[in-house]
Write a protein that binds this DNA or RNA. Structure first.
Lengths: 121, 121
DNA sequence: TTTATATTTAACTCACAAGTTAATTAACTT
DNA sequence: AAGTTAATTAACTTGTGAGTTAAATATAAA
């Protein structure tokens, strides 16, 4: 099932779904595990739908274990996004450097280096 | 005008808008420049709306020059996405490495290294 | 001042995403 | 077999995103 970027970005455009992904960085979780933080805000079928969106977007995979459906992150979707982002990396990293240059001219205090995700000094 | 991730990802979930961003990597462009490739598929007001979405998402900025509105990429939106992606980088890069390991076990041919965007060997 | 070019706003339609409740399927437990 | 827990499906409502056409605004050129 090959997701396209439209689906993947659309899946990411929802904070509930992003929170679910964040939870999954700490390891596999069942649907009800993932649902727990949201059951005061929305119903279980809503959760099921969110997970279906994430799965079709290639961001998670769901397996079966007795009556549970363990979910885990799927690298495919993330890779697609990362690959797409790569064509813009030069642009926004350059803009970090412009900021650095700027700060050097207006600031006497030293500003911490390596703040920008440790990349490119 | 501070965009949130919901808006930014939603803006990216449309191939017309992504094509506009791609065009802008080659430099500033007016609304009608950006519209040109799409005018057989959609009207000019539709283009205007797409650009408004991109602007509110913090992905482009629009300025004024006579009757034109030159647009250019805005690093802010890209940084936000990149920052968010960073918390998953370890995960999907690790999965590249797992793939490397796997390929070593099933393949006798050498497979090219540094293919994965040159990162992490 | 009129006309042409560039872009936006207004008002509307249509499709679809996100939520709901009620009913259903699936596997385990007693 | 009956009951419990986990998750999904069905059917529906509602809000919003993406497109439309027609009209309005803004600047430049004649």
């Amino acid at each position: 099932m090959h997701a396209n970027l439209d689906q993947t970005f659309a899946a990411l455009a929802d904070s509930t779904r992003r929170a679910m992904l964040a939870r999954l960085t700490r390891g596999e979780a069942s649907v009800s595990d993932l649902a727990k933080p949201f059951l005061n805000e929305m119903s279980l079928p809503a959760i099921t739908k969110h997970l279906q969106v994430l799965e079709k977007a290639g961001l998670i995979t769901k397996t079966r274990e007795a009556q549970w459906r363990p979910c885990k992150l799927n690298a495919d979707g993330f890779k697609d996004v990362a690959k797409w982002m790569d064509q813009y990396r030069a642009f926004w990293e350059e803009s970090f450097e412009r900021l650095d240059e700027y700060l050097k001219t207006v600031t006497s205090k030293k500003h911490t280096k390596g703040k920008h995700h440790g990349r490119k000094s």
